[in-house]
């Protein structure tokens, strides 16, 4: 679990504690398909993924963004609100991959209690899977 950080402890440029997610499983992709409503068979049916030029199913990009949501929420806990989150999906993730979230504080506004986090999700080879920014407002 990533460590919770209060607004008073945030400094610009500061690294955020990492969050290592459990390895992605095929069952998780089926669950995510059901819960998100994204039934694109690229994520659940190998033969379909192969026809799309892949060597098997890939994780939903949105799952890795979900990891970012989880990461930022663990840092904020109940002390702040997520105002904006935007990401780019750079690389596919597959069942068996372990995705780790890391980040840093890119800006802090004392007046508005707002802060921006830069967040990167990497796989077990250190390759960037998903990255983006998250604007949060501390209460």
């Amino acid at each position: 679990m990533a460590q919770q950080l209060l607004f008073s402890r945030l400094k610009e440029g500061q690294e955020l504690p990492e969050l290592v997610n459990p390895p992605i499983t095929r069952v998780q992709l089926v669950k995510y398909a059901g819960a998100s409503g994204d039934f694109n068979p690229l994520h659940t049916v190998d033969s379909f993924a192969e026809k799309a030029g892949l060597d098997g199913v890939i994780a939903h990009g949105m799952l890795s963004m979900g990891f970012i949501g989880k990461y930022v929420r663990e840092i904020l806990a109940e002390h702040g609100d997520i105002k904006k989150i935007s990401v780019r999906f750079s690389r596919m993730a597959k069942p068996g991959d372990t995705l780790t979230c890391s980040g840093k504080v890119s800006s802090v506004s004392d007046d508005s209690q707002q802060t921006e986090f830069e967040v990167i999700v990497r796989n077990q080879h250190g390759e960037k899977v998903t990255s983006g920014v998250c604007l949060v407002h501390y209460f």
Binding site: N40, P41, L42, F48, K51, A52, H60, G61, M62, M65, D81, I82, K83, K84, I85, S86, V87, R88, F89
Partner: peptide, 14 residues
């Protein structure tokens, strides 16, 4: 065709 579709970027503003 769905098989041609990849998700490039996503943004949510609340």
């Amino acid at each position: 065709e769905m098989r041609r579709v990849l998700h490039g970027e996503q943004e949510y503003e609340f």
